[in-house]
Amino acid sequence: MIRIEQVSKTFGQGKNSVVALAPLDQFIGEGEFIAIVGPSGCGKSTLLRIVAGLETATEGRITLGTSQLKRPVGFVFQDAVLLPWKTVAGNIRFPLDTSGVPRKVGDRKVEELVELVGLQGFENALPKQLSGGMKQRTAIARALADDPAILLMDEPFSAVDLMTREGLNDELLRIWQATGKTILLVTHSVEEAAYLGTKVMVMSARPGRLRKTYDVALPSPRTEETKTSADYLDLVGELKHMMRDADR
């Protein structure tokens, strides 16, 4: 559960200050999958960073309902942020190694995750030897490593080709269904948002603010058929319309 109450963020002071986020309210229930869309610079990353505790809100309050107090969220950054001196396996197991998980347990977990994101054979590769999409998949595996109840993803698939991307979307849905994680995912694609989300938050820029939160009433589980259903296409159309509107 995540409760966002009147959260706003202003960077800088006085004349040079930038309102990145106007006061925003949103309640996110346990196990919801929230997709966030909006034009560049509307404060999507800022919102995620505040939820993660990387940025403090200028005003307002965030309440995280999770028992994982030490490490409440997993985060997939907009640009993978892999440690360049660590291998794929080393990066994936980093959260485990820094929370005292025994090596043996970690090894097994890493093996599982590598398979999950389809990086078999690249366990010992260094980040500089990976493509953008492979880096991103490594980052996703790392975020899943210590099984956080809340998963924050900032455009996790932006560097992945369409085919892989659709595969990863389905994989993500599967993980979500299997684990009941609460997921916040930022994307530039309204199609992706409608396909993945139980709710879609549409934001607009200057100042960054929440325009509207859509409830997605598509049946679960989502499949290829979902993408051709009238409800889905209607929602995509409406989201696009809202986005264009929001841009103005």
Binding site: R49, A52, G53, L54, K70, R71, V73, G74, F75, F77, D79, V81, L83, F94, P95, T98
Partner: peptide, 12 residues
């Protein structure tokens, strides 16, 4: 700076 963010998320 992004490494600092990673350290922050992992509460190192």
């Amino acid at each position: 700076k992004s490494f600092t963010d990673l350290a922050g998320v992992l509460r190192l």
